[in-house]
Nucleic acid binder design. Structure first.
Length: 503
RNA sequence: GGGGAUAUCGUCUAGAGGUUAGGACGAGGGAUUUUCAGUCCUUAAGCCGGGGUUCGAUUCCCCGUAUCCCUACCA
């Protein structure tokens, strides 16, 4: 039988990176084994705070972004649909009936109040919490009487009172659980919707799922799911519980650790291949091969469920950033430019849509800054000196001015540079450097004493790409007018006998 | 309170009954260069504790400890 795996998100909000990592593992297993990858929407929780259909679009976007589109899902449908649980209610109803008829489930009329009070008391007495199974011994007559008197009810699983349930987990081996310690799980809620346990078992069986991959947080409740399969007379699929992803404090990764939703990462300008590679490595490794940067085909080739680690992993934002920088540098510049454009438009550095001139300029500017870029969202900051109007001292870094423009030789130097640069017939990196070196010699200075003030005068900053390539791309007009604006102010101050002072 | 899982550098991890315990991020140092970044080289940094099994365990077993997760009419 060919492998069939499924990604089963709930639309409770923005999808979490951990969920997408599981989806990647699903997809990888399917591709590796030549099987199918499906996605199913688990929308059986209809509480307003937790039912957030807006999240569905983000789920779809995230899968598209990663390039792991399901072979069958609610978007494209397939042979065993519908792929949305709220559209499969009759099916769950049918099996709930079957379970009750076969004695594997029963109606429970206990009120929320009673349940809450019971739990509270159990906690106070330091007893294990759980349902006391009062309704399990109701006679058919009593049940009917309750129904007739209009009491609402849920359906509970009649957990076996003895024996053990064995979970077959590909990552962790076999785990056994004592049945008497398992709760009589609610399978159908008062609103008629199934809980996870019923819906999941029914759907996974009907959809021919062979492997259930899901987070470690499901591990302790796994015997209940297994029992639902068993009670329905079905062989449960194989399980695989990848470890949880934690924050720096070793708690489940959540908002206060930083970004956690997948779209957060997309918006910050992470590349799909960086996110894919990083997420895969967070809990999986190719083995003794000392290689971490892996293409998707390379990962598929090496992927096995057994290679997934058993211990939780702390999400290392720094490493992700490093990896993203790596993939940015490994990309065709044209691709990066295209991906940066939305950020530049948003920062009002270029028009929306960009003009052909702007695009042309961008094609020269961006390659200069690519080595410095770790996130696409850093593009506006990095290229701003090429776009912004600069008129000394507006837009100039104060520390840079203090450090490099207050020296005595700066005015003489700028005058010479402006004269020499203006006379250039070809505004090229090589010519600019040649002239600058000439001037350095004439002034009898170290190269550094010339180059740094020149950079500050032309860009307002102390850091950036090589000076002469910067000037070449910046162009004659921008460069000269900026340098002139510095000279204008500085020479006035020099004439009046003082240095230029910052505040 | 009950249950489950896990334990190798700060972090992600590789590893084998005998290894100089390997790699990556991060940190330190150096080289390159006009700065930053990048690139290259380099240094420091680790087997949770206690028992067993064994000629020999960080590796296998048990116990302890710690951490995480579950303990809902949420998934």
């Amino acid at each position: 039988m060919s492998v069939r795996v499924r990604y089963a998100p709930s639309p409770t909000g923005s999808p979490h990176v951990g969920n997408l990592r599981t989806a990647i593992y699903d997809w990888l297993l399917a591709r590796k084994e030549g099987g199918q990858f499906l996605a199913r929407l688990e929308d059986t929780d209809r509480t307003p705070e937790r039912y957030r259909p807006e999240g569905i679009y983000e789920i779809e976007e995230s899968l598209r972004f990663l390039g792991i589109l399901p072979d069958e899902w609610w978007v494209s449908e397939g042979a065993v649909g519908p792929y949305v649980q709220s559209e499969r209610l009759e099916l769950y109803q049918k099996y709930a009936e079957q379970l009750m008829q076969t004695g594997h489930a029963y109606r429970c009329f206990c009120t929320r109040e009673r349940l809450d009070a019971m739990r509270l008391e159990q906690q106070e007495k330091k007893q294990p919490t759980g349902y006391d199974r009062r309704c399990r011994s109701l006679t058919p007559e009593e049940v009917q009487a309750n129904i007739d008197s209009g009491l609402t009810s849920v359906v509970r699983l009649a957990m076996p009172r003895e024996g053990v349930t064995i979970l077959k987990d590909v990552i962790r081996g076999n785990i056994s659980y004592e049945n008497r310690l398992q709760d009589d799980q609610v399978l159908v809620k008062t609103d008629g919707y199934p809980t996870y346990f019923l819906a999941c078992a029914v759907d996974d069986h009907h959809m021919g799922i062979t492997h259930i991959l899901r987070g470690d947080d499901w591990l302790s409740s796994a015997p209940k799911l297994v029992q639902v399969f068993t009670a329905l007379g079905w062989e449960p699929p194989l399980f695989a519980h990848p470890p949880l992803i934690l924050g720096a404090d070793k708690k489940k990764l959540s908002k206060r650790h930083g970004s956690t939703t997948f779209v957060d990462f997309i918006n910050q300008g992470y590349l799909p291949e960086a996110l894919f590679n990083f997420l895969v490595l967070l809990g999986w490794s190719a083995g003794d091969e000392n290689k971490e940067i892996l293409s998707i085909p390379e990962i598929i080739e090496r992927f096995t469920l057994e290679g997934i680690s058993e211990h939780p992993a702390i999400f290392d934002y720094d490493k992700l950033k490093w990896m993203n920088g790596h993939y940015i540098r490994a990309s065709q510049p044209g691709r990066i430019i295209g991906m940066c454009i939305p950020y530049l438009i948003k920062a009002h550095l270029i028009a929306d849509p960009p003009t052909p001139e702007e695009l042309d300029y961008l094609r020269k500017v961006l390659p200069l800054e690519i080595d410095r870029m770790k996130l696409l969202s850093e593009a506006p900051e990095l290229v701003s000196i090429f776009f912004k109007e600069l008129r000394f001292p507006d837009g100039y870094d104060e520390k840079a001015i203090a450090k490099w423009l207050s020296a005595d030789h700066v005015v003489r130097m700028l005058k010479k540079e402006i004269t020499a640069f203006s006379a250039l017939s070809d505004w090229t990196e090589a010519n600019l450097e040649f002239e600058t070196r000439q001037i350095t010699e004439e002034l009898g200075l170290e190269f550094a004493k010339v180059i740094h003030p020149t950079r500050v005068a032309a860009t307002g900053k102390t850091v950036g790409p090589g000076l002469f390539e910067t000037l070449e791309v910046l162009g004659r007009d921008r460069t000269l007018s900026r340098m002139q604006s510095v000279l204008d102010v500085l020479s006035t101050q020099t004439e009046s006998g003082g240095h230029y002072l910052v505040n």
